[in-house]
Computed example of a mutant assay.
Amino acid sequence: MASQYFGRLSEVFHRHSLLGSFHSHRATTLSVLCVALALPFAIRDYLTFLSYGPGGLPYNVVGWLASNVARLIAAEQLSTSVYDDPNLPHADEPSFLPTSFPPHRESPRPRIGPHPVPQRQLQQLPNEEVKHTLLDRFAKLGKHAQEKGLVELRTSRFERHHDAYFVSKTQQWHSIAQATGGEIAHVHDGKDNSIHVVLHPADCKAVLDAGWGQRHAFSGVDTRKILGFALPVNYVLVYAPRDDAEVDIAMGIIRAAIAFMTGSREDLG
């Protein structure tokens, strides 16, 4: 009996000791608990960021932190009502994609990473053969357009790790070309092979309505004070093609981007 009594008494004192310690160091205790709870989520989020591969931000903890801060200004990416604005630049001009193109994409939209930069898809990724096919055709089209004096080929100013088309300095740059520094399109060579393009407003709407892409989280957001530039609403992500038929569709969209940004309606094949 005595041993049970003293055992219970010891438990009482132990509990009071813990409570007293908690009250004495409440801020520190709560901070430790918050860190313990948040750490697994932070690690998982950081690994997701790394899974995109190198992009426009540093490929390390600094880039990860910056990308999470950028979530505060990220915009909705799927609605197409913005393209109905008749005051958008070039909205009163004919679009460049053929009628009823692209066809409706049968699959649901792939899941996109939660970080606005770099913008990457996490699902429905192509195999290595399809990746190679897209990159080869992208390079050949760029060379062909360069020979015609429409584009220049160099590293993307936004991604800094991928080849991109730019409007040639011999061409007249309209306001959208000036907003992107002349950049027309690039493929995210590596992890997902999604594509960023800059399109006529009506073509943006066609691509989104057919389920082939979405806007960038910064498209149409005034980020000039933060980033020094702002992306127009014309800046669109095209989902990675997964077979030869989808590569054909992606290349059709890319050709429309070249045509819009260079002001050329020449058939690029």
Rank of each mutant, 00 (worst) to 15 (best):
S51R: 12
H115D: 13
L9G: 02
R44E: 09
D85N: 15
R120L: 00
H186Y: 14
V62N: 12
A164R: 07
L227A: 12
E159R: 06
F22G: 02
R15T: 09
N60A: 03
H216R: 14
H16E: 09
A75I: 00
I249N: 06
V233H: 10
H196R: 12
V238Y: 05
H200Y: 13
P116F: 10
E152P: 01
H174M: 09
F166G: 05
H174T: 14
L88W: 06
R157L: 08
V117G: 04
A66F: 05
D222F: 04
L88M: 01
P114R: 10
W212S: 03
D45T: 09
L50C: 03
R109F: 05
R26F: 11
L227M: 13
H200A: 08
P114M: 05
E106A: 08
L33I: 15
A217P: 01
R224I: 02
N127H: 09
S10H: 14
P108S: 14
H115N: 13
Q4M: 10
P241E: 15
A257R: 07
D136G: 08
S67R: 07
R154D: 12
H115W: 05
V35P: 02
C34V: 00
V221H: 10
E159Q: 10
A259V: 03
D45N: 08
P108A: 06
G56W: 01
Q77F: 03
